[in-house]
Design a protein around this nucleic acid. Structure first.
Length: 453
RNA sequence: GGCGACGUAGCCAAGUGGUCUAAGGCGGAAGUUUGCAAAACUUUUAUUCGGCGGUUCGAAUCCGCCCGUCGCCUCCA
């Protein structure tokens, strides 16, 4: 299995010694509802995790919540509620959304505010070693002490200094030094520390949680590409300075960001499409498919038509699963399975893996109606789509609905009309049901119906 | 100013030196099937990969230049 590693900028063979994969994925700052970009990231790493488990690895999947920072505080103030309450609300709805999107729960979801003592311990060690310094209750990491600073994002400190947008803050020794601990301001949540009351800086919580839950060297660290700098760069700096162990993470995986219009979908730009809003308009599977039809590292442009088109593609897979298998000459499936695995082994090439799935579905449809035994091919189809977290089973939910007996009754009458060749009335029943979003399909054997969402 | 990514059919999107006269999906066209539809299947829809040069026996794939789009350098998944 090959994975593109942001740290080395190349495709690498992925190996672990003990079959356990320790994976840390940066989660959200729950100051407002999450948007489709967050959903995309969650789905990308969900598929990576599912595929690794399929390959026989045990995956420790840790995803954090940064539940204390400037934006948390100002959003809570605006709403007139406690920061903790704001976090709780948004985290709960995020969990609900992940569930709707069929994202498997992570092993743990640690929160920054519950790791304060670990954080203080780490900052303290860095201060004692002079890798950090204290100014009026703030603690800053001393970037010049980390000679390989910039190795992840391919930046040199001198370039950063030349950067036009870097804000000069006279209180820091160097403009690129970053806060590990921030002194409290009036009205802010705060914790006691050796440097006075305050709260953690942005990056330190991930260092604390990654080390605590996964150890000093983790196998995979992931997140959106927009986190590469400064967040992940700074995580590396502070973590490696603290543990004196390199590397902090062996493989860095970054997904491309979701674009909305001509810009990145981002809370601060305000061009967001929230997950809950999206779930009202699109099916979870079509959203998942939409994200997986392009490679995870490419930026993806939000496109309504493309998302909607996924439902039709998925229904092809569903009908392949429903086709009644014959009993002769079983359809061989090895090729499709191998194509799928080869694609996924190549840096999780989901578009290529999907191509194998659609090839399989077409063969099932063709050969199944030729009377061949396609039952094991159907099992494979189900197995492969599940690795991508796409649900093609359970579609007979319509029979559980309250309207089912009435629809069945109508179909019964309609089939009697068809038998007596009263097609006008039969067709009118079909048309009327269609206008109520119920479609009917007649086959040789029976008539099926489904509700169009 | 620095760092980086990308530009493939009507749309989305794989492919990164020969098997590419380029996968898969959506859409379009024709056909098989059907009472008619729908679904499914078959065939078809890029001799061409932003433009111009170059390297090579051979390039969508490597190199150079140009045009265009986007990301990061400030909060960000």
């Amino acid at each position: 299995m090959k994975i593109y590693n942001t740290l080395t900028k190349q495709l690498e063979e992925f190996e672990v010694t003990d079959n356990i994969v320790n994976m840390y994925v940066c989660g959200i700052t729950p100051y407002s509802s999450s948007h489709l970009g967050h959903a995309m990231c969650a789905i990308v790493f969900d598929v990576i995790r599912r595929y690794m488990e399929y390959k026989g690895f045990k995956v420790n999947h840790i995803q954090n919540f940064t539940d204390i920072d400037d934006k948390m505080i100002s959003a809570a103030n605006e709403k007139g509620i406690e920061v903790s309450e704001l976090a709780e609300r948004n985290i709960q709805s995020y969990f609900d959304e992940l569930k709707s999107l069929n994202v498997l729960p992570a092993t743990e979801y640690p929160r920054a505010t519950q790791e304060i003592s670990e954080i203080i311990k780490i900052v303290n060690t860095l201060v004692e070693r002079d890798d950090a310094y204290v100014i009026e209750g703030d603690v800053y990491f001393r970037v010049k002490n980390k000679s390989d600073y910039g190795k992840l994002s391919n930046r040199k400190v001198s370039d950063l200094e030349a950067g036009a947008r870097l804000e000069l803050d006279d209180s820091k020794e160097h403009p690129e030094d970053f806060a590990l601990w921030k002194a409290t301001k009036p009205g802010e949540p705060n914790w006691e520390s050796p440097w006075g009351k305050g709260r953690p800086g942005w990056h330190i919580e991930c260092t604390a949680m990654a080390i605590r839950y996964l150890g000093q060297t983790i196998d995979i660290h992931g997140g959106g590409v927009d986190l590469v700098f400064p967040h992940h760069e700074n995580e590396i700096a502070q973590s490696e300075s603290f543990t004196k162990v390199k590397p902090f993470a062996r493989v860095w995986i970054h997904n491309g960001t979701l674009q909305y219009g001509s810009d990145k979908m981002s809370k601060s730009v305000g061009n967001i499409f929230s997950v809950s809003q999206a779930l009202e308009t699109y099916s979870p599977d079509s959203l998942r498919m939409f994200f997986l039809t392009s490679h995870y590292r490419s930026p993806l442009v939000f496109d309504e038509k493309t998302i909607k088109a996924q439902d039709k593609a998925i229904s092809r897979l569903r009908s392949a699963l429903k086709i009644v298998s014959g009993d002769s000459n079983p359809l061989p499936t090895n090729k499709f399975k191998q194509d799928f695995i080869d694609a996924m082994d190549e840096d999780f090439n989901t578009p290529k893996a999907l191509a194998a799935i659609f090839d399989l579905a077409r063969d099932i449809n063709r050969e199944g109606s030729n009377g061949r035994d396609v039952s094991s091919a159907q099992e494979l189809l189900n197995e492969l789509t599940q690795i991508l977290g796409i649900n093609i089973e359970d579609q007979n939910l319509s029979s559980n609905l309250d309207v089912a007996p009435f629809v069945e009754l109508l179909l019964e009458i309609r089939n009697e009309l068809r038998e007596s060749k009263q097609f006008n009335i039969a067709d009118s029943i079909r048309d009327r049901l269609e206008s109520m979003n119920i479609s009917i399909e007649d086959s040789q054997k029976n008539t099926t119906w489904k509700i169009n969402y």
